[in-house]
Nucleic acid binder design. Structure first.
Lengths: 229, 229
DNA sequence: CCAAAAGTGTTCAGGCTACACCCATGT
DNA sequence: ACATGGGTGTAGCCTGAACACTTTTGG
């Protein structure tokens, strides 16, 4: 009760749209709220920004605290400021989106955050506050970005097959892609390194595993660069 | 002196990077600060956000108050939060960028805001706070956006020639473009309406004037759409 | 008549699209 | 042996890049 200002101030929060990919469909990580307002509703992970941290730091911290996630791809999305977006008082929220390797984090998230759950993006429940707006802006951004920057890999395990990569693109973009053309194009970037390893699962020919070339990956990611449709 | 909170809160501002085009080069509108900190330095127009307005509203309001500009294209850019970006106290700033028709506003801005001045982007003075960072992020965004969305027209007068449009693209992107290819491509979008009017200036053949097709323009602007290189 | 910018078509190469069959494996 | 996804090449089309000269005007 001891912080007094000349003019009224809005409270400031960060909220994170955490995407994952389950080899079939895109998913988002949501938290069930234990407190009012919107108690019992699902919401994006997030919380108040402290005075001694940047927004990026706040987003990483909240992600860690609420979901156990660390070292994920995280990028600022947009700042939401509708006057009555929080029923209690004026709260402005800086939204982030994160891309995670779902398989790596599935178990951890399940233990650190008992109330966290991955939802298919086609089956998202009613969300607290204006989180539905935030989510849709994040999805839009992900779609846009995926087509001109090679960020899709952040959603896949370190070793992956071309079919997995293609399924990811198809899931995110919502369109079917031609297998041969997709492979030709992706390989042409000289971004994937074939491993001496194959993925065998199910009654069919095993699939070649790849990882990306980290140096080339960074270079391309920086300089914004055309990818695919 | 009577706004008291349980936890300390950051102050919140908006800052606007206002672009204009003088037929030759891209320019930015800056304000000379009359108060400390950074008194006498140039800075982006902006100011504190009120509790009863959204960020967009705050940006429009500050733009009006400080520069006299109204009804310009305005879009949220990024939120800046380095802990010591303001020497007085913790201030978080939501940056916007605006595109204006310089010719229309030149005089108005000059009267409403005696301290406002248009600078060539190649000759920007030292800026207050982290405004240089904000500016460079805005320029990067403008460059990126111009190549895949038809927003360049916001910087031109309502009636313009193809050469003016081309010079704009060349100035923003920093590259020379082939005249014939440029015209072919731009016209192919069926976005420009030729007028029964020509621009005559100087000892040479007069140039055909165009305006854009507003319906088609809006449609294309919305659905994000490939433009040019 | 000279200087200055406006305006205009064609050719070529490379990239994108469409498309169908064989391969390796587990059951 | 069969069902399942993995893997591969080519031909036509279209788009983007390169390129030079004529036209219209004002001075």
């Amino acid at each position: 009760m001891k912080h007094t200002y000349l003019y009224p101030r809005a409270a400031l929060t960060v909220d994170c749209v955490v995407f994952g990919f389950d080899e079939q469909e895109l998913r988002v990580l949501l938290i069930e709220r234990g407190l009012e307002p919107f108690k019992g509703h699902w919401a994006l992970p997030g919380g108040f920004v402290r005075l001694d941290e940047t927004l990026d730091e706040a987003a990483f911290r909240e992600l860690k605290e609420e979901t156990g996630l660390e070292k994920v791809f995280l990028e600022q999305l947009y700042t939401f400021s509708t006057v009555d977006r929080d029923p209690r008082e004026r709260v402005i929220s800086v939204a982030y989106y994160a891309l995670t390797k779902l398989a790596d984090h599935r178990t951890r998230a399940a233990t650190d955050a008992a109330d966290a759950q991955w939802f298919r993006i086609s089956q998202i429940p009613a969300l607290a506050f204006d989180h539905a707006d935030i989510f849709s802006k994040a999805l839009e951004r992900l779609r846009g970005k995926l087509t001109y920057q090679p960020i899709g890999f952040e959603l896949l395990p370190a070793k992956f097959t071309l079919s997995q990569l293609q399924r990811l693109y198809e899931a995110v973009l919502g369109t079917a892609l031609d297998k041969r053309n997709f492979r030709k194009k992706v390989l042409s970037y000289d971004l994937l390194i074939p491993l001496n390893e194959q993925l065998r699962e199910g009654p069919h020919r095993p699939a070649q595993l790849f990882r990306f070339n980290p140096v080339r990956y960074e270079r391309l990611k920086k300089k914004g660069f055309l990818f695919e449709l």
